[in-house]
């Protein structure tokens, strides 16, 4: 069996550093998601939350550090073990990432068809069952292009949970939706956790939905974990950057006149073959 911490830990990230080319994106990220909790990874644009998610999904490999998902070190898995692990996790992408050439029903039943030996009748029943869960019953014969944004997100959730995963990832589940639909997606996520006992990792920049669904919040800023705590603790935090984020204040960059001038000049003066003439 897996080592002991995995019994109540779904994800464990230790000392994760990543680079995109020369640029360092994540700086020494440590994170732990407990079984059955909803962890919201929150941060502004460019804070590295999408990169962190891609590492949790094993789509990127870190420069250094360890990512353990359901007790297994992603870097140490054989392709076969990795495939096994992936049948135990579900992912709902930001854009839905439904296969545009297939109907909603085929999209949702694809993992069942590929990973199980169930017969067509059972697959049909399970697919319609998940469609009921996300309130999309009767839409299985439509193509993704015929659905609205909120319906696509819900269909993507249905596909993510069709294998009854132990761990569910949602990337920006409510982004780009009107408040009512966004709120219904939040309710759905809460219901999934309560009914199926999944651990859920939600990546979002939406404050309302964060406070509504989160058990704990991980605040990312410029590739570093600013805080990792319960909703109340985050709200009460005295950290200026966190408060800025919570109160939607823009950050005042310290004004350096020289640097400002250099930026306006497009940094030409410092380039080796600069063409600025007096």
């Amino acid at each position: 069996m897996a080592p002991s911490p995995s019994d109540d830990t779904s994800i464990e990230v230790i000392g994760l550093n990543t680079h995109y080319g020369e640029r360092q994106i994540l700086h020494d990220v440590n994170l732990e998601v407990r079984r059955g909790e909803i962890m919201v990874i929150m941060g502004g644009s460019g804070s590295g939350k999408t990169t962190l998610l891609n590492h949790l999904l094993g789509l990127l490999s870190p420069s250094s550090g360890t990512v353990r998902v359901l007790g297994q070190d992603l870097a140490a898995l054989s392709p076969m073990e990795r495939q096994q692990l992936r049948t135990r996790t579900g992912v709902a992408f930001q854009s839905g990432a439904l296969f545009s050439s297939m109907t909603i029903g085929d999209n949702i039943s694809l993992p069942l068809r590929e990973h199980t030996d169930l017969d067509e009748t059972t697959i049909g029943i399970m697919t319609r069952l998940k469609l009921e869960v996300v309130s999309l019953a009767g839409f299985e014969d439509l193509k993704p292009a015929e659905l609205s944004g909120g319906m696509i997100k819900r269909a993507a959730l249905a596909r993510a949970i069709v294998m009854d995963p132990d761990l569910l990832f949602c990337d920006e589940p409510s982004a780009g939706l009107d408040p009512v639909v966004a709120s219904s997606i939040d309710d759905l996520i809460l219901r999934l956790r309560d009914a199926m006992g999944m651990s859920i990792v939600v990546v979002t920049h939406d404050l309302d939905s964060t406070f509504k669904i989160a058990d704990r919040i991980c605040v990312l800023d410029r590739g570093k974990v600013l805080a990792l705590d319960t909703v109340e603790a985050i709200r009460a935090s005295s950290d200026q950057r966190i408060q800025n984020l919570l109160n939607r204040r823009t950050e005042e960059a310290a004004l350096d006149p020289d640097a400002y001038l250099r930026r306006l000049l497009g940094d030409k003066a410092n380039q080796p073959n600069g063409t600025i003439r007096p």
Partner: peptide
């Protein structure tokens, strides 16, 4: 290319379905 920018390739990968095979 369209599947890639639409994250459909990533979706296949995280479902444990090899995009090459599929």
């Amino acid at each position: 290319g369209t599947m890639r920018i639409n994250q459909e390739i990533d979706a296949l990968t995280v479902m444990g379905i090899s995009p090459v095979r599929f």
